[in-house]
Simulated scan of single mutants.
Amino acid sequence: MHRTYSMRATRAPTASQIQNPPPPPSTTKSGRFFGKGALGHALRRNAAGAFGPDLAKKLSQLVKMEKNVMRSMEQVAKERMEVAQQLSLWGEACDEDVSDVTDKLGVLLYEIGELEDQYVDRYDQYRVTVKSIRNIEASVQPSRDRKQKITDNIAQLKYKEPNSPKIVVLEQELVRAEAESLVAEAQLSNITREKIKAAYAYQFDALREHCEKVAIIAGYGKHLLELIDDTPVTPGETRAAYDGYEASKAIIQDCEDSLTNWVQQNAAVSSKLSTRARTLSQRRRNNIRARSEGHDLSGQDVPMNDRDSWMAAAQHKDEQEDEYDDDDLDAPSHSVLDSEAGLNGESRGRNQEPVAA
Rank of each mutant, 00 (worst) to 15 (best):
Q75G: 08
I150L: 15
S26R: 02
P332N: 06
A179D: 04
Y123T: 09
Q19W: 10
F33E: 05
P162I: 03
A56M: 03
D338W: 04
V140T: 08
V130S: 03
P21D: 04
K58A: 05
Q19E: 14
I251L: 15
D257S: 14
R122K: 12
L115H: 10
E346R: 08
D308P: 00
M1W: 10
N344F: 15
Q264P: 09
Q141R: 03
W90Y: 12
S298F: 01
S164P: 12
A77M: 00
S298D: 12
Y126E: 07
D97K: 05
F34A: 15
H223I: 14
S30Q: 07
S181K: 02
K58R: 01
V269W: 00
V169M: 12
L109Q: 03
R348E: 01
V120K: 00
Y242K: 04
G221W: 09
E194T: 10
N287L: 14
F51L: 10
T27C: 09
A206M: 08
N163V: 07
K36S: 15
T279G: 07
I216P: 01
H334I: 09
E246I: 05
I252S: 14
V128I: 15
D257K: 14
T279Q: 06
E256S: 10
E116I: 06
D117G: 03
E246W: 04
A241V: 14
V101S: 02
W262R: 00
D124T: 11
G37Y: 02
S6K: 13
D97C: 10
H210Q: 03
A312F: 05
E180N: 10
P142Y: 06
N20F: 13
L343R: 11
G37D: 14
L174V: 10
E185S: 06
A15V: 02
I191N: 15
V107Q: 02
S298Y: 03
G349H: 01
S72R: 03
L182N: 06
W310T: 03
Y220L: 09
L227E: 06
D230N: 03
I136K: 08
L182P: 00
F33Q: 01
L174G: 10
S339K: 00
R32W: 09
D338Q: 06
D306C: 11
A177F: 07
S164D: 15
G37L: 07
S26Q: 08
K166E: 15
E246Y: 02
K78P: 00
I167S: 08
Y242E: 05
A290Q: 09
W310M: 05
H295P: 12
P13V: 08
E171Q: 14
L108N: 07
Q156F: 08
T27F: 14
N261L: 15
T151N: 13
I196P: 07
N135H: 14
T4Y: 13
Y200R: 12
S26K: 07
D100E: 12
A215D: 12
G299M: 11
E319G: 12
